[in-house]
Design a protein around this nucleic acid. Structure first.
Lengths: 330, 330
DNA sequence: CTGAAAGCGCTTACAG
DNA sequence: CTGAAAGCGCTTACAG
């Protein structure tokens, strides 16, 4: 049950392997007639070139490595999932496959192994950190790569959602309703995305020449125990509204509000960052933002393909967002 | 900046490529002295064999394909994620990598492309269906593969959690408390896992010689609108307790109960299938089951490696579970 | 427009 | 214990 090879095809047709190769790849001069004869034969006999052999000859793998952080944060999963779908869509259309690299943040071992083994033609990083050892390494080694999410490394080509503008707009909406004491609850400050959202938050205030209440900015609030204290603090300070940087945080905050009989939007307005399934059925409906993550994945993969093909895509691609107004801020 | 090859090593050491190859692989006779000399040189000069060339020579790819269904069901994501972690752990330890295949249920195109391109040495299916075209195809083509979750295809080697026993025990616990009218709410009946849980549910009744209330079995309840009707129906029928086949369903049911002022566990007992993050902070705490999904991934990958190496692992590997008692059934 | 030949970087019978 | 040589299945200068 051996697989049919390019030699078999060549022999059967009485042409050279070179000719068969050219018919398939479309490279090099070849007569229309010959090409069609070869293609017809291939089609009929279901010949599939051996990608490994092709890889070796061309020093290409037709794989892209996608790095997924080895962190459990259930709320981020749909994000990664959607990105992956977008990536895979584009990749498959160019006959590329996805090599999944699961790696703890800051740990470059997996990545190095795969690069040393020459198993991929390029890399997509699905999350970036303020100080990102993976980005640094890829950049040094001159490996084609794209980051989803911004990075501070100059040479990196990035695709991102416009978190800053989004947070700016969300904050502005609240400010323009006359709400002044707005709290911001966010996750890990080492994520670039956290910094970007914070920047948007600040800008909304400064544009309206209002002072930011620094004591109402709560970052690194990841554990729910910690979050309870945060909410406590927010309530003590007579806050008007809360913006949550993600829906997991928002869910927790809402739960605590309910426990303490804080009514939304009566006593407190609240807005969150994603209109995810976690909150979609919540009553009252929560004002939130909508991003197209599949599109993000597609954009990242398209750009990576460009780099691999030797082109230079634009350095920063920023994708839009939408504000989904809800009852929670009325 | 060319990469150092096996020939370079051989030349530098004044030995043949054969010898270098043998020193690395450990196959074939070679003197200890020579092996160590080669290994030392390799270590010092950081030589990494080209995996692609190795692949071509051995007809092996050192990749395993992992199939993830292209379906959005947020509740399943942590499951897949954990499995992936387990898989990757074992794979990496054997220098294998994961090729991610995202594929709509029933669609074998992605899979066929990857097989035709000979990009993997074996496949892990992360979800199975009652009628599973992917399983059928893999089985026909004689590709090494493992299913996570049971399948009805005879030849398939499977790794699964013991959903049946788990559901049996959960149901038994409720029955032994004297609860008779127990409703079962489940998802897609085309998933083997749904059928297994249902079987466990039934067995609990039959073992205690109690009749199953067929009208309290609700499958295929995926959309929340539909679920509302289901809950309505359950309440009409004066039900004692509800078992939910997953936490997404459970969350919805709990929400509806609250809306209708049905108190848990006062008016109604409830139990769910996973002790996932979705419910972990719920008040009252929810009686549920705990499975180790990373372990599942590990077991699947281990078995696949066995098959690839020419061994025959046991046909069905079943992993245990734990009942986590909560206040919701007290 | 077509082909013979070398090359990609390994492995592995075979011979010694 | 070691090595020369063929082979894995492609691609691609080079020559015609």
């Amino acid at each position: 049950m051996k697989n049919i090879t390019i030699s078999d095809v060549a022999d059967a047709l009485g042409v050279s392997k070179t000719t068969v190769s050219r018919a398939i790849s479309g490279k090099g001069r070849i007569s229309n007639q010959t090409r069609e004869r070869v293609l017809a034969y291939i089609e009929e006999h279901d010949y599939k070139p051996n990608v490994i052999a092709k890889s070796l000859a061309q020093s290409k793998t037709y794989n892209i490595g996608v790095i997924m952080p080895a962190e459990y944060d259930i709320i981020d999963l749909p994000f990664f999932q959607s990105c992956l779908f977008g990536i895979q869509e584009i990749a498959a259309s160019k006959d590329y496959d996805i090599l999944l690299i699961i790696s703890p943040p800051g740990d470059t071992r997996q990545l190095e192994r795969i690069l040393a083994n020459r198993k991929v033609d390029g890399i997509i990083l699905m999350r970036t950190f303020v100080k990102d050892s993976q980005v640094k390494m890829l950049s040094q080694k001159n490996v084609p790569f794209i980051t989803i999410g911004s990075t501070y490394v100059e040479s990196a080509i990035q695709v991102d959602q416009d978190h800053k503008s989004a947070c700016f707009e969300l904050t502005s909406i609240l400010l323009k309703k006359g709400l002044k004491k707005i709290a911001l609850i966010g996750g890990n400050e080492n994520f670039v995305v956290t910094q970007n959202r914070l920047a948007g938050f600040r800008e909304a205030f400064s544009q309206l020449k209002l002072p930011v209440r620094e004591d109402l900015i709560y970052l690194n609030t990841e554990h729910s125990s910690q979050l309870d204290e945060t909410v406590e603090d927010i309530l003590t300070k007579n806050t008007d509204a809360v913006i949550c940087m993600d829906d997991a945080l928002c869910t927790q905050v809402l739960k605590t509000f309910r426990k303490k009989n804080v009514s939304v939007p009566g006593d407190m307005k609240i807005a969150s960052f994603y209109n995810s399934t976690v909150l979609e059925n919540y009553i009252p409906s929560i004002t939130s933002l909508s991003f197209d993550e599949k599109k993000l994945g597609r954009a990242a993969c398209k750009n990576l393909m460009e780099i691999i093909e030797g082109n230079t895509p634009q350095k920063i691609t920023v994708l839009g967002y939408q504000v989904i107004p809800g009852e929670s801020t009325e």
